[in-house]
Amino acid sequence: MIVAKGKPLEEIIEAVKDCDSILVAGCNECVTVCEAGGSKEVGILASALRLYFLNQGKKTQVGEITLQRQCDREYLIQARESVESYQMVISMACGVGCQFMAEEFANKPVQPGVNTMFMGGALERGVWSERCQGCGSCLLARTGGICPVARCAKRVLNGPCGGSSNGKCEISKDVDCAWQLIVNRLKALGRMDDYEQIIPLKDWSSDRAGGPRKVVKEEVRQ
């Protein structure tokens, strides 16, 4: 999933303090699971903003809505009536949802309510970890299912580097060395011969280096 975390309340207040009416819009997908922008977090932010405006003696209206998905026009258009009745929208969706919201409602200022962090998963309740950087040409088959692009600080493709020590990366003793994990896993799979195969230079044109990307699937396109 896409992992996000809420922006500091002070930053949000600064951005919306002069507004007369605000719609706080959540998303039922990734940001709900990572507890950053689902209906629960929408309720908390909206309540905090209402208290702020009351304390300031302002009559600003703060509404709440949570869409099934903000990265999908199909759901955005269903929220048109609500969105149009407010002066501004705080999107609690990831950067994708926030941008789709802004594109759909071109005349409506849209303010992000979260900082979008990465693609990852939960290690335990309240702890999320990065797993994928969307490089566009997946290497996982060669590296025992552990991604050196997302999980190695230097994106080393034939590691480890000289900084690996006791299984930890040189950037922090709290970060596992991805290549140590890869070696451990290849050993467990009895595939250490694969480790001896040099991974050739990666074609980064499918990554961000090639500019903004698009996927077109002609067989389903209408």
């Binding site: 309340l9 905090a48 903003l49 208290l51 304390n55």
Partner: peptide, 9 residues
């Protein structure tokens, strides 16, 4: 406590 401090309550 942190949120209420930020909103002035």
């Amino acid at each position: 406590q942190r949120l209420l401090e930020a909103v002035g309550t």
